[in-house]
Protein backbone atom coordinates (compact mmCIF):
# COMPACT_ATOMS: atom_id res chain seq x y z
CA UNK A 1 0.00 0.00 0.00
CA UNK A 2 1.37 3.41 -0.90
CA UNK A 3 1.17 6.30 1.52
CA UNK A 4 -1.50 8.09 -0.49
CA UNK A 5 -3.84 5.23 0.31
CA UNK A 6 -3.66 5.87 4.03
CA UNK A 7 -6.67 7.50 5.66
CA UNK A 8 -4.37 9.58 7.84
CA UNK A 9 -0.68 9.90 7.19
CA UNK A 10 1.06 12.29 9.58
CA UNK A 11 4.76 12.71 10.15
CA UNK A 12 6.35 14.71 12.94
CA UNK A 13 3.31 16.85 13.76
CA UNK A 14 4.24 19.76 16.01
CA UNK A 15 2.07 22.37 17.72
CA UNK A 16 3.42 25.08 19.99
CA UNK A 17 1.48 27.59 22.05
CA UNK A 18 4.10 30.18 22.95
CA UNK A 19 6.81 28.35 24.88
CA UNK A 20 4.60 25.37 25.52
CA UNK A 21 4.90 22.47 23.10
CA UNK A 22 1.50 20.80 23.08
CA UNK A 23 2.39 18.28 20.40
CA UNK A 24 6.06 17.49 19.96
CA UNK A 25 6.33 15.43 16.79
CA UNK A 26 3.62 12.81 16.46
CA UNK A 27 3.49 10.26 13.62
CA UNK A 28 0.24 8.58 12.73
CA UNK A 29 -0.54 6.08 9.98
CA UNK A 30 -4.17 5.01 9.83
CA UNK A 31 -5.52 2.52 7.31
CA UNK A 32 -8.88 3.06 5.61
CA UNK A 33 -11.70 1.23 7.41
CA UNK A 34 -9.74 1.13 10.63
CA UNK A 35 -10.77 2.42 14.05
CA UNK A 36 -7.71 4.06 15.48
CA UNK A 37 -7.66 5.12 19.12
CA UNK A 38 -5.48 7.86 20.57
CA UNK A 39 -5.23 7.24 24.29
CA UNK A 40 -3.83 9.67 26.80
CA UNK A 41 -4.57 11.76 29.88
CA UNK A 42 -5.77 15.37 29.84
CA UNK A 43 -3.36 17.77 28.27
CA UNK A 44 -1.47 15.01 26.47
CA UNK A 45 -2.10 16.70 23.14
CA UNK A 46 -4.89 14.48 21.79
CA UNK A 47 -7.35 17.25 20.99
CA UNK A 48 -4.60 19.46 19.63
CA UNK A 49 -3.46 16.70 17.28
CA UNK A 50 -7.01 16.17 16.09
CA UNK A 51 -7.55 19.91 15.65
CA UNK A 52 -4.49 20.15 13.42
CA UNK A 53 -5.67 17.25 11.29
CA UNK A 54 -9.16 18.81 11.07
CA UNK A 55 -7.69 22.19 9.91
CA UNK A 56 -8.93 23.89 13.08
CA UNK A 57 -5.37 24.70 14.14
CA UNK A 58 -2.44 25.50 11.86
CA UNK A 59 0.30 22.87 11.83
CA UNK A 60 3.56 24.29 13.24
CA UNK A 61 5.82 21.47 12.14
CA UNK A 62 5.74 18.21 10.23
CA UNK A 63 3.18 17.30 7.60
CA UNK A 64 -0.10 15.47 7.35
CA UNK A 65 -2.29 14.15 4.58
CA UNK A 66 -5.74 12.60 4.60
CA UNK A 67 -6.53 10.12 1.82
CA UNK A 68 -3.52 11.58 0.03
CA UNK A 69 -4.76 15.21 0.29
CA UNK A 70 -2.33 17.56 2.04
CA UNK A 71 -3.88 19.11 5.16
CA UNK A 72 -1.93 22.36 5.25
CA UNK A 73 -2.31 23.29 1.58
CA UNK A 74 -5.85 22.04 0.87
CA UNK A 75 -7.96 22.80 3.96
CA UNK A 76 -11.21 23.10 2.02
CA UNK A 77 -10.81 19.59 0.60
CA UNK A 78 -9.89 18.18 4.00
CA UNK A 79 -13.09 19.64 5.47
CA UNK A 80 -15.04 17.72 2.82
CA UNK A 81 -13.36 14.44 3.79
CA UNK A 82 -13.55 14.68 7.57
CA UNK A 83 -16.50 14.82 9.95
CA UNK A 84 -15.54 16.19 13.36
CA UNK A 85 -17.34 15.43 16.60
CA UNK A 86 -15.87 17.58 19.32
CA UNK A 87 -15.33 16.91 22.97
CA UNK A 88 -18.16 19.29 23.75
CA UNK A 89 -21.09 19.07 21.48
CA UNK A 90 -20.55 21.59 18.70
CA UNK A 91 -24.20 22.31 18.12
CA UNK A 92 -26.22 25.48 18.51
CA UNK A 93 -27.75 25.86 21.97
CA UNK A 94 -30.51 28.18 20.81
CA UNK A 95 -31.76 26.00 17.97
CA UNK A 96 -33.77 22.79 18.23
CA UNK A 97 -32.31 19.42 17.28
CA UNK A 98 -34.10 19.45 13.95
CA UNK A 99 -33.04 23.04 13.22
CA UNK A 100 -29.42 22.24 14.00
CA UNK A 101 -29.28 19.34 11.56
CA UNK A 102 -31.20 21.35 8.94
CA UNK A 103 -28.70 24.20 9.33
CA UNK A 104 -25.65 21.98 8.91
CA UNK A 105 -27.21 20.13 5.98
CA UNK A 106 -27.94 23.47 4.28
CA UNK A 107 -24.36 24.55 4.86
CA UNK A 108 -23.31 21.30 3.20
CA UNK A 109 -25.20 22.40 0.12
CA UNK A 110 -28.41 20.38 0.49
CA UNK A 111 -31.66 21.95 -0.65
CA UNK A 112 -34.06 22.97 2.08
CA UNK A 113 -36.24 19.92 1.40
CA UNK A 114 -33.32 17.46 1.27
CA UNK A 115 -31.97 19.00 4.47
CA UNK A 116 -35.30 18.48 6.19
CA UNK A 117 -35.46 14.82 5.12
CA UNK A 118 -31.87 14.22 6.14
CA UNK A 119 -32.46 15.83 9.53
CA UNK A 120 -35.52 13.64 10.14
CA UNK A 121 -33.58 10.56 9.11
CA UNK A 122 -30.65 11.32 11.40
CA UNK A 123 -32.89 12.22 14.32
CA UNK A 124 -34.57 8.83 13.91
CA UNK A 125 -31.28 7.01 13.64
CA UNK A 126 -29.98 8.55 16.84
CA UNK A 127 -33.20 8.11 18.80
CA UNK A 128 -33.91 11.84 18.97
CA UNK A 129 -37.18 12.04 17.05
CA UNK A 130 -39.12 12.96 20.18
CA UNK A 131 -36.64 15.67 21.09
CA UNK A 132 -36.53 17.09 17.56
CA UNK A 133 -38.45 20.24 18.49
CA UNK A 134 -36.60 20.94 21.73
CA UNK A 135 -33.83 23.51 22.01
CA UNK A 136 -30.40 21.99 22.64
CA UNK A 137 -30.05 23.78 25.95
CA UNK A 138 -32.78 21.41 27.22
CA UNK A 139 -30.94 18.30 25.98
CA UNK A 140 -29.08 15.91 28.27
CA UNK A 141 -25.35 15.36 27.79
CA UNK A 142 -25.90 12.07 26.00
CA UNK A 143 -28.49 13.56 23.65
CA UNK A 144 -26.16 16.39 22.73
CA UNK A 145 -23.36 13.97 21.90
CA UNK A 146 -25.67 11.91 19.74
CA UNK A 147 -26.92 14.98 17.90
CA UNK A 148 -23.35 16.17 17.49
CA UNK A 149 -22.34 12.82 16.04
CA UNK A 150 -25.40 12.96 13.77
CA UNK A 151 -24.30 16.40 12.56
CA UNK A 152 -20.87 15.02 11.68
CA UNK A 153 -22.46 12.37 9.48
CA UNK A 154 -24.51 14.73 7.30
CA UNK A 155 -22.05 14.66 4.42
CA UNK A 156 -21.27 10.92 4.92
CA UNK A 157 -17.58 11.72 5.37
CA UNK A 158 -15.21 8.80 4.79
CA UNK A 159 -13.20 9.77 7.87
CA UNK A 160 -14.71 10.65 11.23
CA UNK A 161 -12.90 12.24 14.16
CA UNK A 162 -14.38 11.50 17.55
CA UNK A 163 -12.83 13.57 20.29
CA UNK A 164 -13.53 11.88 23.62
CA UNK A 165 -17.01 10.79 22.56
CA UNK A 166 -18.05 9.51 25.98
CA UNK A 167 -16.18 11.70 28.48
CA UNK A 168 -18.65 12.71 31.16
CA UNK A 169 -21.41 10.33 30.07
CA UNK A 170 -23.06 7.82 32.39
CA UNK A 171 -22.33 4.12 31.77
CA UNK A 172 -25.63 3.40 30.02
CA UNK A 173 -25.33 6.34 27.62
CA UNK A 174 -21.73 5.43 27.07
CA UNK A 175 -22.55 1.93 25.91
CA UNK A 176 -25.27 3.35 23.62
CA UNK A 177 -22.65 5.64 22.13
CA UNK A 178 -20.32 2.69 21.63
CA UNK A 179 -23.05 0.82 19.75
CA UNK A 180 -23.57 3.83 17.51
CA UNK A 181 -19.86 4.02 16.79
CA UNK A 182 -19.77 0.30 15.97
CA UNK A 183 -22.56 0.86 13.44
CA UNK A 184 -20.48 3.54 11.75
CA UNK A 185 -17.56 1.15 11.48
CA UNK A 186 -19.80 -1.52 9.97
CA UNK A 187 -20.81 1.02 7.33
CA UNK A 188 -17.24 1.45 6.22
CA UNK A 189 -16.23 4.66 7.99
CA UNK A 190 -12.68 5.16 9.09
CA UNK A 191 -12.59 6.49 12.63
CA UNK A 192 -9.97 8.37 14.59
CA UNK A 193 -10.99 8.36 18.21
CA UNK A 194 -9.41 9.99 21.24
CA UNK A 195 -10.12 8.79 24.73
CA UNK A 196 -8.88 8.85 28.28
CA UNK A 197 -10.27 5.41 28.97
CA UNK A 198 -8.37 2.23 28.23
CA UNK A 199 -11.58 0.20 28.22
CA UNK A 200 -13.11 2.49 25.59
CA UNK A 201 -10.09 2.15 23.33
CA UNK A 202 -10.16 -1.58 24.03
CA UNK A 203 -13.85 -1.84 23.10
CA UNK A 204 -13.71 0.15 19.90
CA UNK A 205 -10.23 0.50 18.47
CA UNK A 206 -8.35 -1.84 16.16
CA UNK A 207 -5.12 -0.09 17.02
CA UNK A 208 -4.14 2.36 19.73
CA UNK A 209 -1.48 5.02 20.04
CA UNK A 210 -0.69 6.17 23.55
CA UNK A 211 0.19 9.85 23.77
CA UNK A 212 1.82 11.55 26.70
CA UNK A 213 3.02 15.15 26.94
CA UNK A 214 2.74 15.63 23.21
CA UNK A 215 4.69 12.51 22.28
CA UNK A 216 3.66 9.06 21.18
CA UNK A 217 4.92 6.58 23.77
CA UNK A 218 3.43 3.35 22.43
CA UNK A 219 1.38 1.97 19.57
CA UNK A 220 -0.25 -1.39 18.96
CA UNK A 221 -3.41 -3.43 19.20
CA UNK A 222 -5.31 -3.29 22.48
CA UNK A 223 -4.09 -6.75 23.45
CA UNK A 224 -0.47 -5.78 22.66
CA UNK A 225 -0.82 -2.84 24.99
CA UNK A 226 -2.45 -4.77 27.76
CA UNK A 227 0.13 -7.52 27.68
CA UNK A 228 2.80 -4.86 27.84
CA UNK A 229 1.35 -3.38 31.02
CA UNK A 230 0.36 -6.54 32.86
CA UNK A 231 -2.73 -8.55 33.36
CA UNK A 232 -6.06 -8.20 35.09
CA UNK A 233 -6.74 -9.82 38.42
CA UNK A 234 -9.65 -11.38 40.30
CA UNK A 235 -10.24 -10.02 43.81
CA UNK A 236 -12.03 -12.47 46.08
CA UNK A 237 -13.17 -12.33 49.67
CA UNK A 238 -14.16 -15.46 51.56
CA UNK A 239 -17.04 -15.62 54.03
CA UNK A 240 -14.99 -17.89 56.26
CA UNK A 241 -11.45 -16.55 56.69
CA UNK A 242 -10.15 -19.81 58.12
CA UNK A 243 -10.63 -21.58 54.80
CA UNK A 244 -8.22 -19.31 52.98
CA UNK A 245 -5.44 -21.89 52.63
CA UNK A 246 -7.84 -24.38 51.14
CA UNK A 247 -9.12 -21.77 48.66
CA UNK A 248 -5.58 -20.75 47.69
CA UNK A 249 -4.70 -24.37 46.85
CA UNK A 250 -7.80 -24.70 44.73
CA UNK A 251 -7.07 -21.48 42.84
CA UNK A 252 -3.49 -22.53 42.21
CA UNK A 253 -4.70 -25.77 40.67
CA UNK A 254 -6.78 -23.82 38.12
CA UNK A 255 -4.63 -20.79 37.25
CA UNK A 256 -1.28 -22.39 37.80
CA UNK A 257 0.02 -19.59 40.00
CA UNK A 258 -0.34 -18.76 43.67
CA UNK A 259 -2.78 -16.00 44.60
CA UNK A 260 -1.67 -13.16 46.84
CA UNK A 261 -3.37 -13.62 50.23
CA UNK A 262 -4.60 -11.16 52.81
CA UNK A 263 -5.53 -13.71 55.53
CA UNK A 264 -6.81 -11.15 58.09
CA UNK A 265 -9.54 -10.08 55.62
CA UNK A 266 -10.02 -13.45 54.00
CA UNK A 267 -8.93 -11.92 50.67
CA UNK A 268 -7.33 -13.53 47.62
CA UNK A 269 -5.87 -11.61 44.70
CA UNK A 270 -5.76 -13.97 41.72
CA UNK A 271 -3.69 -12.92 38.66
CA UNK A 272 -5.58 -13.69 35.46
CA UNK A 273 -3.52 -14.11 32.30
CA UNK A 274 -6.79 -15.18 30.67
CA UNK A 275 -10.04 -13.57 31.79
CA UNK A 276 -11.98 -16.81 31.16
CA UNK A 277 -10.29 -18.28 34.18
CA UNK A 278 -12.29 -15.99 36.43
CA UNK A 279 -15.36 -18.12 35.80
CA UNK A 280 -13.39 -21.34 36.28
CA UNK A 281 -12.15 -20.13 39.65
CA UNK A 282 -15.63 -19.09 40.79
CA UNK A 283 -17.18 -22.40 39.71
CA UNK A 284 -14.47 -24.41 41.47
CA UNK A 285 -15.00 -22.46 44.68
CA UNK A 286 -18.72 -23.10 44.44
CA UNK A 287 -18.22 -26.81 43.90
CA UNK A 288 -15.91 -26.97 46.89
CA UNK A 289 -18.58 -25.14 48.95
CA UNK A 290 -16.22 -22.27 49.67
CA UNK A 291 -18.59 -19.32 49.88
CA UNK A 292 -17.45 -15.78 48.99
CA UNK A 293 -18.78 -12.38 50.00
CA UNK A 294 -17.42 -10.47 47.01
CA UNK A 295 -15.70 -11.00 43.68
CA UNK A 296 -14.36 -8.38 41.30
CA UNK A 297 -12.23 -8.47 38.17
CA UNK A 298 -9.81 -5.59 37.94
CA UNK A 299 -8.42 -4.43 34.61
CA UNK A 300 -5.14 -2.63 34.44
CA UNK A 301 -6.12 1.04 34.72
CA UNK A 302 -4.95 3.86 32.50
CA UNK A 303 -2.75 4.89 35.41
CA UNK A 304 -1.04 1.50 35.37
CA UNK A 305 -0.65 1.68 31.59
CA UNK A 306 0.99 5.03 31.96
CA UNK A 307 3.16 3.98 34.81
CA UNK A 308 4.35 1.04 32.76
CA UNK A 309 4.87 3.00 29.54
CA UNK A 310 6.24 6.29 30.78
CA UNK A 311 7.46 5.66 34.28
CA UNK A 312 5.15 8.37 35.67
CA UNK A 313 1.45 8.44 36.41
CA UNK A 314 -1.17 10.42 34.53
CA UNK A 315 -0.97 13.16 37.14
CA UNK A 316 -4.73 13.33 37.10
CA UNK A 317 -6.29 12.33 40.38
CA UNK A 318 -9.80 12.88 39.04
CA UNK A 319 -9.52 12.56 35.31
CA UNK A 320 -13.22 12.58 34.61
CA UNK A 321 -14.26 15.82 36.25
CA UNK A 322 -11.18 17.77 35.22
CA UNK A 323 -11.53 16.68 31.65
CA UNK A 324 -13.55 19.65 30.47
CA UNK A 325 -11.40 22.58 31.56
CA UNK A 326 -7.97 21.29 30.86
CA UNK A 327 -8.33 20.20 27.28
CA UNK A 328 -10.50 23.07 26.20
CA UNK A 329 -7.99 25.49 27.62
CA UNK A 330 -5.27 23.66 25.87
CA UNK A 331 -7.11 23.84 22.60
CA UNK A 332 -7.87 27.52 22.85
CA UNK A 333 -4.55 28.75 24.10
Amino acid sequence: MTNSDLAVDATGLVKRFGDFTAVGGVDLAIEPGEVFGVLGPNGAGKTTTLSMLATLLPIDGGRASIFGVDVASSPHQIRQLVGVTGQYASVDENLTGAENLWLFARLHGRSSKQAKALADDLLGRFGLTEAAGKQIKDYSGGMRRRLDLGASLISSPPLIFLDEPTTGLDPRTRSQMWDTIRDLVANGSTILLTTQYLDEADQLADRIAVIDRGLKVAEGTPSDLKTSVGESSLQLRLSDKSLIEEAALLVKRITGSSPVLTPEAGGLNVPLPDANQAADVLIALRQASLSITSAAVQQPTLDEVFLALTGHDTGQPDAQSDARETESEEARR
Binding site: P32, G33, Q77, L107, P158, G188, S189
Partner: peptide, 30 residues
Protein backbone atom coordinates in the same frame (compact mmCIF):
# COMPACT_ATOMS: atom_id res chain seq x y z
CA UNK B 1 -16.46 -6.22 3.68
CA UNK B 2 -16.08 -3.06 5.64
CA UNK B 3 -12.76 -2.44 3.93
CA UNK B 4 -14.47 -2.61 0.57
CA UNK B 5 -17.20 -0.23 1.70
CA UNK B 6 -14.56 2.09 3.11
CA UNK B 7 -12.76 2.06 -0.22
CA UNK B 8 -16.00 2.89 -2.01
CA UNK B 9 -16.98 5.76 0.24
CA UNK B 10 -13.47 7.20 -0.05
CA UNK B 11 -13.56 7.06 -3.84
CA UNK B 12 -17.00 8.66 -3.91
CA UNK B 13 -15.93 11.43 -1.54
CA UNK B 14 -12.72 12.13 -3.42
CA UNK B 15 -14.61 12.48 -6.69
CA UNK B 16 -16.89 15.11 -5.18
CA UNK B 17 -14.04 17.27 -3.82
CA UNK B 18 -14.13 20.93 -4.79
CA UNK B 19 -11.16 23.24 -4.32
CA UNK B 20 -13.06 26.19 -2.81
CA UNK B 21 -16.61 27.39 -2.16
CA UNK B 22 -18.33 28.82 -5.24
CA UNK B 23 -19.90 32.31 -5.09
CA UNK B 24 -23.31 30.63 -5.21
CA UNK B 25 -22.48 28.45 -2.22
CA UNK B 26 -21.19 31.52 -0.40
CA UNK B 27 -24.45 33.40 -0.93
CA UNK B 28 -26.57 30.41 0.07
CA UNK B 29 -24.48 29.80 3.19
CA UNK B 30 -24.64 33.48 4.14
Amino acid sequence: MSALMAERSIQAAKQRLTPRPTPRETVSQT
